[in-house]
């Protein structure tokens, strides 16, 4: 496991427009390594858009810095090399490729084949289920296994920051618990996780810090526990 030095991502005045529609309006927030940060909000609040903008998939205004280095001009590949990886909504696995090939693509930017081999072994120990399925076509995996594959594939790029878009979507509660416990393992290893979730209780319970996004603006922030007991959050998301 790579040693992760403490780092911090600071987002300032991030805005994203789809044509004339302002999807994200001047939001500022931060998240750091060894912590789980959640972004909660209802459908259409701009959660996925925020993650895509952080990853460089959408044109956006504002600044994004890792520690003091500005990264908002970097390409997607540049950001992956800088230690940021997105595990997208709907998992984005390649259904007609094997589990092995999916994982290998996670390390696409890594040119050191000995290191890739080592990373692969590490992932198969972290997700033993994937080791059993290594030669299987990814599209034949169950939903939970596909989600594990997507997370594992993202980890193959050795991120310091892992962005996760709706990791619990469409999964059975038992599987969700398994996956969320993996998130806590990753946090202990020093990774910074930014999770976008509609399942607010679940996410807030494991979060060190949390933000509420409503129609493109951040309306609340605090620790996970604070928001879990905030009457406005309870009213809007937890009741």
């Amino acid at each position: 496991m790579k040693k992760i030095t403490p780092q911090n991502i600071q987002v300032n005045n991030l805005s994203v427009n789809y044509g004339n529609i302002k999807a994200i309006k001047d939001i500022s927030f931060n998240f750091r390594t060894s912590e789980i940060t959640t972004l909660i909000g209802s459908n259409g609040a701009g959660k996925t858009t925020t993650l895509k903008a952080l990853m460089g998939l959408l044109p956006s205004a504002g600044t994004v810095s890792v520690n003091d280095t500005r990264i908002e001009k970097l390409t997607v590949a540049g950001r992956i090399s800088r230690g940021i990886t997105l595990c997208p909504e709907g998992r984005g696995i390649f259904p007609n490729l094997t589990v092995h090939d999916n994982l290998m693509l996670g390390a696409y930017l890594n040119k050191n084949s000995a290191e890739i081999k080592h990373l692969l072994e590490e992932q198969l120990t972290f997700f033993p289920k994937l080791a059993e399925r290594i030669k299987q076509i990814a599209g034949t995996l169950s939903g939970g296994e596909q989600q594990m594959l997507a997370i594992s594939r993202a980890l193959m790029s050795q991120p310091e920051f892992l962005l996760l878009d709706e990791p619990s979507l469409g999964l059975a509660p038992v599987i969700i618990d398994q996956i969320f416990s993996k998130f806590e393992d990753l946090k202990k290893q020093g990774l910074g996780l930014l999770i976008v979730e509609q399942n607010a209780i679940l996410a807030l319970e494991i979060s060190d810090r949390a933000y509420v996004l409503e129609t493109g603006t951040l309306t609340l922030s605090g620790t996970g526990a604070e928001l879990l007991h905030d009457p406005r959050v309870i009213d809007a998301y937890l009741s």
Binding site: M55, V76, I80, F94, P95, L97, L105
Partner: peptide
Amino acid sequence: RAVSTKPDAAKLMG
């Protein structure tokens, strides 16, 4: 193969 099945996801691999 990745680009031919899911170009958007392929970008996320760098």
